[in-house]
Computed example of a mutant assay.
Amino acid sequence: MNALPEIEAAIKQLPENDVRQLAGWIQNYLNEKWDRQMEEDLATGKLDDLIAKAEADIAANKVRDLDEIIDNFLFLQKLY
Protein backbone atom coordinates (compact mmCIF):
# COMPACT_ATOMS: atom_id res chain seq x y z
CA MET A 1 0.00 0.00 0.00
CA ASN A 2 1.33 3.42 -0.96
CA ALA A 3 -0.09 5.86 1.57
CA LEU A 4 1.75 8.94 0.26
CA PRO A 5 -0.80 9.83 -2.46
CA GLU A 6 -3.60 9.47 0.10
CA ILE A 7 -1.75 11.69 2.57
CA GLU A 8 -1.07 14.30 -0.11
CA ALA A 9 -4.74 14.31 -1.11
CA ALA A 10 -5.82 14.68 2.52
CA ILE A 11 -3.42 17.57 3.07
CA LYS A 12 -4.88 19.39 0.07
CA GLN A 13 -8.27 19.26 1.80
CA LEU A 14 -7.01 20.88 5.02
CA PRO A 15 -7.44 24.55 5.87
CA GLU A 16 -4.25 26.57 5.40
CA ASN A 17 -3.69 26.98 9.14
CA ASP A 18 -3.78 23.20 9.63
CA VAL A 19 -1.34 22.72 6.75
CA ARG A 20 1.02 25.24 8.36
CA GLN A 21 0.75 23.42 11.71
CA LEU A 22 1.44 20.12 9.97
CA ALA A 23 4.44 21.62 8.19
CA GLY A 24 5.78 22.80 11.54
CA TRP A 25 5.27 19.36 13.04
CA ILE A 26 7.04 17.70 10.10
CA GLN A 27 9.96 20.13 10.37
CA ASN A 28 10.29 19.44 14.10
CA TYR A 29 10.13 15.70 13.42
CA LEU A 30 12.89 15.96 10.81
CA ASN A 31 15.01 18.15 13.10
CA GLU A 32 14.72 15.61 15.93
CA LYS A 33 15.52 12.75 13.55
CA TRP A 34 18.59 14.65 12.31
CA ASP A 35 19.72 15.31 15.88
CA ARG A 36 19.37 11.60 16.77
CA GLN A 37 21.37 10.62 13.67
CA MET A 38 24.12 13.13 14.51
CA GLU A 39 24.26 11.85 18.11
CA GLU A 40 24.48 8.25 16.86
CA ASP A 41 27.18 9.11 14.32
CA LEU A 42 29.15 10.95 16.99
CA ALA A 43 28.83 8.07 19.46
CA THR A 44 29.92 5.48 16.90
CA GLY A 45 32.93 7.49 15.72
CA LYS A 46 31.63 8.23 12.22
CA LEU A 47 32.47 11.91 12.70
CA ASP A 48 35.92 11.44 14.20
CA ASP A 49 37.78 12.08 10.92
CA LEU A 50 35.79 15.23 10.22
CA ILE A 51 36.31 16.51 13.75
CA ALA A 52 40.06 15.82 13.54
CA LYS A 53 40.25 17.66 10.20
CA ALA A 54 38.36 20.66 11.60
CA GLU A 55 40.60 20.75 14.68
CA ALA A 56 43.72 20.57 12.47
CA ASP A 57 42.42 23.39 10.26
CA ILE A 58 41.73 25.52 13.33
CA ALA A 59 45.19 24.82 14.74
CA ALA A 60 46.77 25.72 11.38
CA ASN A 61 44.66 28.89 11.18
CA LYS A 62 43.08 27.67 7.94
CA VAL A 63 39.62 28.89 8.90
CA ARG A 64 37.78 32.16 8.55
CA ASP A 65 35.69 33.87 11.18
CA LEU A 66 31.99 33.14 10.72
CA ASP A 67 31.12 36.83 11.09
CA GLU A 68 33.45 37.60 8.17
CA ILE A 69 31.74 34.99 6.01
CA ILE A 70 28.29 36.30 6.88
CA ASP A 71 29.33 39.91 6.26
CA ASN A 72 30.76 38.97 2.85
CA PHE A 73 27.59 37.07 1.98
CA LEU A 74 25.36 39.98 2.96
CA PHE A 75 27.56 42.39 1.01
CA LEU A 76 27.31 40.22 -2.09
CA GLN A 77 23.54 39.97 -1.70
CA LYS A 78 23.30 43.75 -1.80
CA LEU A 79 25.15 43.80 -5.12
CA TYR A 80 22.57 41.59 -6.76
Rank of each mutant, 00 (worst) to 15 (best):
N2F: 00
L22N: 02
R64I: 06
D49N: 14
F73W: 13
A59C: 00
A43V: 04
D49I: 03
D35G: 07
A23E: 09
Q21W: 02
N72V: 04
I69E: 04
G45L: 02
L47D: 15
A10F: 15
Q37Y: 07
N17D: 15
N72F: 04
L47I: 02
W34P: 00
D49C: 01
F73K: 14
E39M: 14
A59M: 02
L30D: 09
L79W: 05
D49W: 13
A9D: 06
K62P: 00
K33G: 00
Q37L: 11
G45F: 14
L66W: 11
E6W: 05
L22V: 08
L14Y: 00
K46F: 03
N61A: 07
G24E: 13
N28E: 12
D48H: 04
E16I: 05
D67I: 12
L42G: 06
E68R: 09
I69Y: 09
E68L: 03
Q77T: 10
V19S: 03
E32M: 14
I51G: 00
N17Q: 07
E6L: 14
N61G: 05
K33C: 11
N2K: 02
L47K: 15
A54Q: 12
P5N: 08
I58W: 07
I26F: 15
D67P: 04
N2T: 01
A10R: 13
L76S: 11
K53L: 03
K12F: 09
V63Q: 06
D57P: 00
L22M: 08
K33F: 15
D18Y: 04
A59D: 11
A9I: 04
L66A: 06
Q21R: 07
N61P: 05
N17V: 03
Q27W: 05
R36I: 14
K12I: 06
I58Y: 09
E55P: 02
R64T: 14
L47H: 09
I11C: 04
K78H: 08
Q37E: 13
G45H: 10
A23C: 13
A9T: 08
Q77I: 12
Q13P: 03
K12P: 01
N31A: 15
L66K: 12
L50G: 07
K46A: 10
K46M: 11
I51E: 01
V63H: 15
I58N: 10
D57A: 13
A60Y: 10
Y80W: 14
D71A: 03
P15W: 15
V63M: 14
I70P: 03
Q37M: 07
A54L: 13
D57C: 08
E6A: 06
E40R: 15
W34C: 05
A52H: 01
W25E: 07
Q27S: 05
E32I: 15
L14T: 00
M38L: 08
D35T: 11
Y29F: 09
I69G: 00
W34R: 13
N61D: 11
V63R: 06
Q77M: 15
K46T: 10
M38T: 09
I70W: 10
